[in-house]
Amino acid sequence: MTRDLAAAQYFYSRVLGWEFRSSGLGDGFSVALHEGMPVAGIGALAERLDLPVAWTPYFAVADADVTAARICERAATMAVGPLAFGTGRAGLAADPAGAVFGFWEGVVVPDWSVGRGRAPAWLELHTRDAVEASAFYGEVLGWAGEGSGCCVASHEHDHVVLRHGHDTVALLSGGGAVDEAPDPHIRPRWHVHFPVPDLEEAIASTVALGGSTAAPVRTSTTSRWVVLADPDGALFTVVAPQDAGP
Protein backbone atom coordinates (compact mmCIF):
# COMPACT_ATOMS: atom_id res chain seq x y z
CA MET A 1 0.00 0.00 0.00
CA THR A 2 1.37 3.37 -1.03
CA ARG A 3 0.31 7.02 -1.09
CA ASP A 4 1.35 7.61 -4.72
CA LEU A 5 0.58 4.70 -7.01
CA ALA A 6 2.27 6.15 -10.11
CA ALA A 7 5.46 7.01 -8.21
CA ALA A 8 5.58 3.53 -6.65
CA GLN A 9 5.17 1.90 -10.05
CA TYR A 10 8.00 3.98 -11.45
CA PHE A 11 10.30 3.11 -8.55
CA TYR A 12 9.72 -0.64 -8.54
CA SER A 13 9.83 -0.91 -12.32
CA ARG A 14 13.40 0.45 -12.23
CA VAL A 15 14.60 -1.38 -9.11
CA LEU A 16 12.96 -4.78 -9.66
CA GLY A 17 12.27 -4.74 -13.39
CA TRP A 18 8.50 -4.98 -12.97
CA GLU A 19 5.79 -4.01 -15.42
CA PHE A 20 2.26 -3.18 -14.33
CA ARG A 21 -1.25 -3.84 -15.54
CA SER A 22 -4.60 -2.71 -14.26
CA SER A 23 -6.83 -5.08 -12.34
CA GLY A 24 -10.51 -5.58 -11.79
CA LEU A 25 -10.23 -3.67 -8.51
CA GLY A 26 -10.33 -0.19 -10.05
CA ASP A 27 -7.79 2.54 -10.75
CA GLY A 28 -6.35 2.39 -7.23
CA PHE A 29 -4.82 -1.06 -7.58
CA SER A 30 -2.35 -2.55 -10.05
CA VAL A 31 -0.71 -5.93 -10.52
CA ALA A 32 3.08 -6.12 -10.80
CA LEU A 33 4.40 -8.49 -13.46
CA HIS A 34 7.86 -9.91 -14.06
CA GLU A 35 8.37 -11.63 -17.41
CA GLY A 36 4.61 -11.71 -17.77
CA MET A 37 3.92 -13.44 -14.45
CA PRO A 38 2.19 -11.69 -11.51
CA VAL A 39 4.45 -11.20 -8.50
CA ALA A 40 2.78 -8.60 -6.27
CA GLY A 41 0.09 -5.96 -6.00
CA ILE A 42 0.40 -2.25 -5.34
CA GLY A 43 -2.61 -0.31 -4.08
CA ALA A 44 -3.22 3.33 -3.31
CA LEU A 45 -4.04 4.03 0.35
CA ALA A 46 -7.50 5.45 0.87
CA GLU A 47 -7.40 8.67 2.87
CA ARG A 48 -9.96 7.27 5.33
CA LEU A 49 -7.65 4.39 6.24
CA ASP A 50 -4.97 5.30 8.76
CA LEU A 51 -2.46 2.71 7.55
CA PRO A 52 1.29 2.96 7.01
CA VAL A 53 2.96 2.70 3.62
CA ALA A 54 4.22 -0.88 3.72
CA TRP A 55 4.59 -4.25 2.04
CA THR A 56 2.26 -6.79 3.63
CA PRO A 57 2.06 -10.54 3.01
CA TYR A 58 -1.42 -11.97 2.42
CA PHE A 59 -2.09 -15.61 3.25
CA ALA A 60 -4.71 -17.64 1.40
CA VAL A 61 -7.48 -18.99 3.64
CA ALA A 62 -10.57 -21.10 3.03
CA ASP A 63 -12.96 -18.89 5.02
CA ALA A 64 -12.24 -15.23 5.82
CA ASP A 65 -14.88 -15.04 8.55
CA VAL A 66 -13.48 -18.07 10.38
CA THR A 67 -9.97 -16.65 10.12
CA ALA A 68 -11.10 -13.27 11.51
CA ALA A 69 -12.83 -15.00 14.42
CA ARG A 70 -9.70 -17.03 15.21
CA ILE A 71 -7.61 -13.85 15.18
CA CYS A 72 -9.89 -12.09 17.66
CA GLU A 73 -10.12 -15.16 19.89
CA ARG A 74 -6.32 -15.17 20.26
CA ALA A 75 -5.85 -11.61 21.54
CA ALA A 76 -4.87 -10.24 18.13
CA THR A 77 -6.41 -7.32 16.25
CA MET A 78 -8.60 -7.13 13.17
CA ALA A 79 -7.78 -3.80 11.50
CA VAL A 80 -9.87 -4.04 8.31
CA GLY A 81 -12.52 -6.46 7.11
CA PRO A 82 -13.15 -9.04 6.06
CA LEU A 83 -14.39 -7.04 3.08
CA ALA A 84 -15.44 -7.95 -0.46
CA PHE A 85 -12.43 -7.24 -2.65
CA GLY A 86 -12.58 -8.03 -6.37
CA THR A 87 -13.17 -11.75 -6.82
CA GLY A 88 -12.79 -12.59 -3.13
CA ARG A 89 -12.71 -11.27 0.40
CA ALA A 90 -9.75 -9.85 2.30
CA GLY A 91 -8.84 -8.79 5.80
CA LEU A 92 -5.95 -6.98 7.47
CA ALA A 93 -4.84 -7.87 10.98
CA ALA A 94 -2.05 -7.54 13.53
CA ASP A 95 -0.79 -10.54 15.47
CA PRO A 96 -0.53 -10.35 19.31
CA ALA A 97 2.98 -8.88 19.05
CA GLY A 98 1.90 -6.20 16.54
CA ALA A 99 3.16 -7.59 13.21
CA VAL A 100 0.71 -6.74 10.41
CA PHE A 101 -0.47 -9.37 7.93
CA GLY A 102 -3.36 -9.93 5.57
CA PHE A 103 -5.49 -12.87 4.52
CA TRP A 104 -7.42 -13.64 1.37
CA GLU A 105 -10.37 -15.88 0.57
CA GLY A 106 -10.78 -16.33 -3.16
CA VAL A 107 -9.07 -17.30 -6.39
CA VAL A 108 -5.26 -17.42 -6.38
CA VAL A 109 -2.83 -17.58 -9.28
CA PRO A 110 -2.39 -21.28 -10.29
CA ASP A 111 0.95 -22.83 -9.26
CA TRP A 112 2.02 -19.52 -7.67
CA SER A 113 3.95 -19.92 -4.44
CA VAL A 114 6.57 -18.07 -2.46
CA GLY A 115 10.00 -19.42 -3.36
CA ARG A 116 9.09 -20.37 -6.91
CA GLY A 117 9.86 -18.57 -10.14
CA ARG A 118 9.37 -14.82 -9.94
CA ALA A 119 7.22 -14.87 -6.83
CA PRO A 120 8.78 -13.37 -3.68
CA ALA A 121 11.78 -15.45 -2.68
CA TRP A 122 10.53 -15.86 0.88
CA LEU A 123 8.89 -14.16 3.85
CA GLU A 124 10.47 -13.45 7.20
CA LEU A 125 8.83 -12.51 10.46
CA HIS A 126 11.00 -10.65 12.96
CA THR A 127 9.25 -11.05 16.29
CA ARG A 128 9.99 -11.25 19.99
CA ASP A 129 9.02 -14.89 20.44
CA ALA A 130 9.20 -17.17 17.40
CA VAL A 131 7.61 -20.12 19.19
CA GLU A 132 4.64 -18.07 20.34
CA ALA A 133 4.24 -16.59 16.85
CA SER A 134 4.39 -20.04 15.30
CA ALA A 135 1.59 -21.23 17.57
CA PHE A 136 -0.56 -18.19 16.73
CA TYR A 137 -0.19 -18.43 12.95
CA GLY A 138 -0.50 -22.20 13.04
CA GLU A 139 -3.85 -21.95 14.81
CA VAL A 140 -5.15 -19.02 12.75
CA LEU A 141 -3.99 -20.17 9.32
CA GLY A 142 -4.06 -23.94 9.83
CA TRP A 143 -0.36 -24.55 9.24
CA ALA A 144 -0.52 -27.84 11.11
CA GLY A 145 -3.51 -29.09 9.10
CA GLU A 146 -3.60 -32.05 6.78
CA GLY A 147 -3.69 -32.13 3.02
CA SER A 148 -1.55 -31.01 0.11
CA GLY A 149 -2.47 -27.34 0.50
CA CYS A 150 -1.30 -27.05 4.11
CA CYS A 151 1.98 -25.65 5.42
CA VAL A 152 4.05 -27.21 8.16
CA ALA A 153 6.19 -25.35 10.71
CA SER A 154 9.29 -26.84 12.33
CA HIS A 155 11.97 -25.58 14.75
CA GLU A 156 15.42 -25.40 13.17
CA HIS A 157 18.38 -23.74 14.93
CA ASP A 158 17.26 -20.21 15.89
CA HIS A 159 14.24 -20.06 13.56
CA VAL A 160 10.85 -21.57 13.06
CA VAL A 161 10.74 -22.61 9.39
CA LEU A 162 7.51 -22.78 7.41
CA ARG A 163 7.36 -25.11 4.43
CA HIS A 164 4.76 -25.76 1.77
CA GLY A 165 5.65 -29.14 0.32
CA HIS A 166 9.34 -28.97 -0.54
CA ASP A 167 9.41 -25.16 -0.67
CA THR A 168 10.61 -23.02 2.24
CA VAL A 169 8.20 -20.09 2.27
CA ALA A 170 8.83 -18.29 5.56
CA LEU A 171 11.15 -17.94 8.55
CA LEU A 172 10.02 -16.79 11.98
CA SER A 173 12.90 -15.37 13.99
CA GLY A 174 12.83 -14.21 17.60
CA GLY A 175 16.40 -12.92 17.67
CA GLY A 176 17.81 -15.93 19.52
CA ALA A 177 17.47 -19.65 19.86
CA VAL A 178 13.89 -20.88 20.04
CA ASP A 179 14.33 -22.01 23.64
CA GLU A 180 15.69 -18.63 24.83
CA ALA A 181 13.70 -15.82 26.43
CA PRO A 182 11.95 -13.40 24.03
CA ASP A 183 13.90 -10.34 22.89
CA PRO A 184 11.98 -7.22 24.06
CA HIS A 185 13.91 -4.91 21.71
CA ILE A 186 12.64 -6.43 18.45
CA ARG A 187 9.90 -4.53 16.63
CA PRO A 188 7.69 -7.28 15.18
CA ARG A 189 7.34 -7.01 11.42
CA TRP A 190 6.92 -9.18 8.34
CA HIS A 191 9.62 -8.70 5.69
CA VAL A 192 9.08 -9.59 2.03
CA HIS A 193 12.17 -10.77 0.12
CA PHE A 194 12.24 -10.25 -3.66
CA PRO A 195 14.81 -11.99 -5.89
CA VAL A 196 17.18 -9.87 -8.00
CA PRO A 197 20.08 -10.93 -10.23
CA ASP A 198 22.47 -8.20 -9.00
CA LEU A 199 22.37 -6.86 -5.44
CA GLU A 200 24.61 -3.84 -6.04
CA GLU A 201 22.58 -2.75 -9.05
CA ALA A 202 19.37 -2.92 -7.00
CA ILE A 203 20.97 -0.87 -4.21
CA ALA A 204 22.28 1.76 -6.64
CA SER A 205 18.90 2.08 -8.37
CA THR A 206 17.10 2.43 -5.03
CA VAL A 207 19.38 5.23 -3.84
CA ALA A 208 19.31 7.02 -7.20
CA LEU A 209 15.50 7.06 -7.12
CA GLY A 210 15.25 8.52 -3.60
CA GLY A 211 15.18 5.33 -1.55
CA SER A 212 17.80 4.14 0.91
CA THR A 213 19.46 1.13 2.49
CA ALA A 214 17.97 0.30 5.89
CA ALA A 215 20.55 -2.26 7.04
CA PRO A 216 23.97 -3.60 5.99
CA VAL A 217 24.28 -6.30 3.35
CA ARG A 218 24.09 -9.78 4.87
CA THR A 219 25.41 -13.00 3.42
CA SER A 220 25.03 -16.75 3.66
CA THR A 221 26.75 -19.58 1.81
CA THR A 222 24.20 -19.33 -1.02
CA SER A 223 22.90 -15.76 -1.12
CA ARG A 224 23.33 -12.09 -0.24
CA TRP A 225 20.52 -9.77 0.82
CA VAL A 226 19.83 -6.25 2.05
CA VAL A 227 16.87 -4.37 3.50
CA LEU A 228 15.90 -1.33 1.42
CA ALA A 229 13.37 1.45 1.85
CA ASP A 230 11.47 2.98 -1.05
CA PRO A 231 11.02 6.79 -1.22
CA ASP A 232 7.84 6.53 0.90
CA GLY A 233 9.62 4.50 3.57
CA ALA A 234 8.17 1.06 2.80
CA LEU A 235 10.73 -1.60 3.71
CA PHE A 236 11.50 -4.53 1.43
CA THR A 237 14.39 -6.94 1.05
CA VAL A 238 16.21 -7.94 -2.12
CA VAL A 239 18.15 -11.20 -2.30
CA ALA A 240 20.65 -12.32 -4.92
CA PRO A 241 22.69 -15.50 -5.44
CA GLN A 242 26.07 -15.56 -3.76
CA ASP A 243 28.77 -14.77 -6.30
CA ALA A 244 31.07 -17.67 -7.04
CA GLY A 245 34.50 -17.22 -5.56
CA PRO A 246 37.77 -17.37 -7.54
Rank of each mutant, 00 (worst) to 15 (best):
R3C: 04
A6T: 13
A6V: 09
W18I: 03
E19T: 15
F20A: 08
R21C: 09
R21V: 15
D27T: 12
G28C: 02
S30T: 14
P38Q: 05
A40L: 04
A40E: 00
G41D: 03
A44L: 15
A46R: 15
E47G: 02
R48H: 14
D50I: 10
P52R: 10
V53E: 13
P57Y: 03
Y58E: 02
V61P: 03
A64H: 08
A64T: 06
A64E: 07
D65T: 04
A68W: 01
A68F: 00
A69V: 01
R70M: 09
C72N: 12
C72D: 14
R74V: 02
M78H: 00
A79M: 12
G81C: 05
L83C: 02
F85T: 12
G86F: 04
G91K: 08
G91V: 06
L92N: 03
G98H: 10
A99T: 08
A99K: 08
V100S: 13
F101P: 02
F103N: 05
F103Q: 05
F103P: 05
W104R: 10
D111R: 14
S113C: 14
V114F: 00
R116F: 01
G117Q: 08
G117M: 02
A121S: 09
E124S: 08
L125C: 02
D129F: 09
D129H: 08
E132D: 11
E132Y: 10
A133M: 09
S134Y: 01
S134E: 14
S134W: 08
G138R: 07
V140F: 11
V140R: 06
A144S: 15
G147M: 10
S148W: 09
G149L: 11
C150N: 06
A153C: 03
H157S: 11
D158P: 00
V160K: 11
V161N: 02
L162Q: 03
R163T: 15
H164V: 03
V169M: 02
L171M: 14
G174S: 10
G174I: 06
G176M: 03
A177R: 14
A177D: 13
V178H: 08
E180R: 12
E180I: 00
A181M: 12
D183V: 06
R187M: 06
W190V: 07
H191P: 00
H193F: 13
P197F: 01
P197A: 13
D198K: 03
E201R: 15
A202T: 02
I203F: 03
I203M: 14
S205G: 01
T206R: 07
A208T: 10
G210Q: 05
A214I: 00
A214V: 01
P216Y: 11
T219N: 08
S220F: 06
T221G: 13
L228T: 00
L228A: 01
A229L: 11
A229K: 12
D232H: 14
F236I: 01
T237F: 00
D243T: 09
A244G: 12
